[in-house]
């Protein structure tokens, strides 16, 4: 068993943080990589990005949005309990290099995935401008950590309850107008990433996105996670999860994410009932 050592409810309990004992993975993991977790014997294999690792302590941290059956089950696990299986580190690490000014855009739980990348980019000497957004103030996560991981932080809420009233793309446009940006990293809901890419395309600024297709094994063995990038089929679990956003077919990704909609709701309702 992979024991949960810390847990924390965030964003009004819609987001949960778990710090899990997984020494081998903690030693190997790099920003941008993910793990696959399975809670118990009957559970499914769920991919989540590592929001942090502590190689000395032998722990990894995941931060996940509670959206359906499996994440609700994960949420119910207490300190001292744990996951039956945790597999990783999987996927390609983010290529962190010194470029100049880098803008990191995060939405929803994407901020958790973005945080180690922003921190790495800053540590290596980039000027990091971070823009993070949420629907409202209560759903915003990791503001303090993002502040520390960046040179400049902009916060947006859709309803204006905090920070800039509006979308992350509004702020992004302003920055792209004013500054010579070398790279944009955008991580969040698929529509947000798509929107960011359409903005940065106009300014011809390279944009990395992190894709979240449905997965099974995470080792390139099943092809479930296939995405179209630059007209070619790629496996997000081994070739990604990060890709050049200007080449990604976001509409296909959004459709494929709907593949099990009916069954997911059956499983979720049954779970809540029990």
């Amino acid at each position: 068993m992979f024991e949960i050592l810390e847990r924390q409810d965030m964003a009004d309990g819609t987001v949960v943080l778990n710090e899990i004992s997984a020494p081998l993975i903690a030693k190997k993991a790099k920003p941008g990589q993910f793990v696959i977790l399975k809670a118990n014997e009957t559970g499914e294999r769920i991919p989540l990005t590592m929001a942090d690792t502590d190689p000395d302590k032998g722990t990894i941290t995941i931060i996940y949005q509670v959206v359906g059956k499996s994440t609700t089950l994960f949420k119910s696990l207490k300190i001292g309990e744990g996951f039956q299986d945790v597999i990783g580190p999987l996927g390609q690490p983010t290529h962190i290099e010194k470029l100049g000014t880098v803008v990191c855009v995060g939405g929803g739980t994407g901020v958790a995935v973005l945080h180690p990348i922003a921190r790495g980019m800053k540590e290596i000497g980039n000027h990091v401008i971070a823009i993070i957004g949420a629907r409202n103030k209560d759903l915003l996560i990791l503001e303090d950590k993002m502040k520390a991981a960046s040179n400049e932080l902009h916060v947006c809420t859709d309803d204006g309850s905090y920070g800039h009233h509006g979308f992350v793309t509004d702020v992004l446009k302003d920055i792209l107008e004013k500054e010579a940006v070398k790279l944009v990293v955008a991580i969040g809901p698929v529509p947000m990433m798509k929107f960011v890419c359409s903005v940065t395309e106009k300014y011809k600024v390279k944009t990395l996105v992190s894709l979240n297709p449905i997965m099974v094994d995470g080792t390139g063995m099943c092809g479930c996670c296939r995405v179209s990038v630059g007209g070619k089929t790629r496996f997000a679990c081994i070739d990604g999860p990060e890709f050049d956003g200007h080449e990604v077919d976001f509409d296909e990704l959004m459709q494929r994410l709907q593949a099990y909609k009916e069954q997911e709701s059956v499983a979720y309702k049954k779970f809540l009932h029990e």
Binding site: T42, G43, E44, V216, Q263, E264, A267, K270
Partner: peptide, 9 residues
């Protein structure tokens, strides 16, 4: 399924 969580068409 749904006794086991993994769906299949």
């Amino acid at each position: 399924f749904p006794e086991y969580d993994t769906p299949l068409a």
